[in-house]
Design a protein around this nucleic acid. Sequence first.
DNA 1: GTGCTATTTAACCGTTTGGCTAATTAACCG
DNA 2: CGGTTAATTAGCCAAACGGTTAAATAGCAC
Lengths: 113, 113
Amino acid sequence: MPTDQLSLTFSALADPTRRAILTRLAEGEATVGELAAPLPITLPAVSRHLKVLERAGLIVRGRDAQWRPTRMQAEPLDEAVAWMQARRRTWEGRMDRLDAHLRSKGDRDDRDR
Amino acid sequence: MPTDQLSLTFSALADPTRRAILTRLAEGEATVGELAAPLPITLPAVSRHLKVLERAGLIVRGRDAQWRPTRMQAEPLDEAVAWMQARRRTWEGRMDRLDAHLRSKGDRDDRDR
DNA sequence: GTGCTATTTAACCGTTTGGCTAATTAACCG
DNA sequence: CGGTTAATTAGCCAAACGGTTAAATAGCAC
């Protein structure tokens, strides 16, 4: 049961519809109906996608009469980017060291395993 | 059916076990058994996680006798980071413009909050 | 109150996911 | 060849996912 923040963020972003919603919300706040309009799915489906995004902290929702204005939040994106870049840096660092090692000498003693 | 690359990448990263595997692989290549050792799941389960990561392009796998050495690949991470940062920048840009707008006038009408 | 609009919840359904055990394949070794 | 190790595939199962339609809720407006 992935309750941790990164799992929530990544699985929220794993769905193309939810990414489309986020892309729209990055431009500015919108109501559920406005978000649903361009999408090929029903309103209840959109409503549940929004709940997933909300649980991941990627959106916050207000109340304006019978409308639910929704705004994007960037913090979870930052955390996810940080996780990816940490792995990328470790990986790149290792690549660099390997590269340096290969370049360093005629090395027959490649014992890096 | 999310066949697109971003969906593959994000859903691969949505699982904590797969993230743990990637974290390990960022340090350097490893066999299936080595990857499975610290994990609380069976070898077949690890094998299928690796298949998911491979399909997402996050790992590549070789063959060394009966071992399957696995290496991480960073490209899908880059693409995912790029997607997130694009949204973040749009969002931030809009924040900035809103901020500027609010700051521009003497705005006694700070009705935000 | 009634009625209208916006949104959510309930109930259902087929597919996917992630785990398991048992069986199978791949490749070595003696 | 037979035996051993590494890894995958097959079959099963329960839970989660993503969609639907129909019903319920929230809030205005008359």
